[in-house]
């Protein structure tokens, strides 16, 4: 328990301090009126509500104490808002050119219709699958919930990533980035991070399913929170994997439809690599080993959903994410030579 507190408290403390420092620097640089009215503050009410509801909701759920909801609302909202705004100001100060790209991408995701359509589909489908699994199996398991979330992600991600380069190229807005003093690698990583911010916002409501499982399984015992944490980590990692793959698909074409189709084909090939090995009877050969290794959900996500964090799985997702980001950068650069 002590180590858990240290593990969570030290990085958390550093983030809080960094946030407060960033906010202080912004206010000092821009003056109180201008600093507080900075555009990033537009996000503050949303952050306050989401964090407050989450922290307050947890308190209400576990302890059944309405007052805790109010306390949680304030206790969660205020520091989180401060931290987010402060970190925003700090990144602005440390590496503004790169951070400008990230902000631009994040703004784009939150202000164009397609990501909201994806979010809508995601929530509807995961909700339905959760309900169907619970009703069909009666099994109170986080594993089934996140497995269904992951299977929906593979279908929806290409919709989220298809426009990252393709739309910009078609609309000419890519010129803004190409003429700015930022490298192709910075642009690519910024697009990746901007999409990940949206994905995390999309993923967050999935945690509600855990609390529903807690309520459903009240009589037979609460589900272990450990697998929830590992499953969330797994979902973040597989999200990065899908986003980088979609980003690569978007970098090789100017057509959003083609980018989406290419991403789907790549994801389906990877997901089917294990069954392909079985169908061709090469499971126990070196070819089979490679094909089985390439299967992201069956081989590498499944342990996370069981509560097992295996470094080999972490390395798989991270290395493939970096690999696809590298391919995207090379693709952007090579187009300039053709």
């Amino acid at each position: 328990m002590t180590w858990a507190f240290i593990g969570a408290g030290v990085p958390g403390g550093i983030i809080v301090l960094a946030g407060i420092l960033g906010l202080f620097l912004r206010l000092r640089e821009e003056g109180f009126a201008e600093g507080v009215l900075a555009p990033s503050l537009k996000l503050a009410p949303g952050l306050a509500i989401v964090t407050g509801l989450f922290v307050g909701g947890v308190g209400l759920w576990y302890l059944n104490e309405p007052l805790l909801f109010i306390i949680g609302l304030v206790a969660g909202a205020v520091p989180m808002t401060l931290v987010a705004l402060g970190c925003d100001a700090l990144f602005d100060r440390l590496w503004p050119s790169f951070y400008a790209c990230v902000k631009r991408e994040t703004f784009t995701h939150f202000s164009t219709p397609i990501p909201y359509f994806v979010l809508f589909l995601f929530l509807i489908l995961t909700g339905f699958l959760f309900w169907a699994t619970l009703r069909g199996t009666g099994n109170v398991s986080v594993r089934y919930v996140f497995m269904s979330v992951a299977s929906i992600c593979f279908f929806l991600f290409p919709l989220l990533t298809m426009g990252l380069f393709a739309r910009e190229r078609a609309e000419g807005t890519i010129e803004v980035l190409m003429t700015a003093p930022v490298s192709d690698a910075a642009v690519t990583v910024a697009k990746f991070l901007g999409t990940m911010v949206f994905y995390l916002a999309m993923l967050l409501p999935s945690l509600l399913y855990y609390f529903i499982l807690v309520e459903v399984g009240r009589e037979i015992g609460k589900p272990d929170p450990g697998p929830v944490i590992s499953a969330m980590l797994g979902m973040v990692l597989i999200g990065g994997f899908y986003v980088s793959l979609g980003l690569f698909a978007s970098s090789v074409t100017s057509s959003q439809i083609m980018a989406a189709i290419l991403a789907w084909v790549l994801v389906i090939l990877l997901m089917l690599s294990k069954p392909i090995a079985e169908v061709f009877g090469v499971t126990y050969t070196w070819v089979g080993d490679i094909l089985v290794y390439l299967s992201p959900t069956d081989e590498h996500l499944e342990p996370f959903l069981r509560g097992v964090i295996d470094p080999r799985d972490v390395v798989f997702f991270l290395s493939f994410t970096v690999f696809f980001l590298f391919l995207s950068v090379r693709s952007i650069e090579s187009r300039k030579w053709r």
């Binding site: 821009e30 003056g31 602005d92 951070y99 790209c101 902000k103 631009r104 700015a180």
Partner: peptide, 15 residues
């Protein structure tokens, strides 16, 4: 906002 984002590419911010 268009100007602000582009300004950040050149480290132009604040006052």
């Amino acid at each position: 906002e268009n100007l602000r984002i582009y300004g950040l590419f050149f480290w132009l911010k604040g006052r």
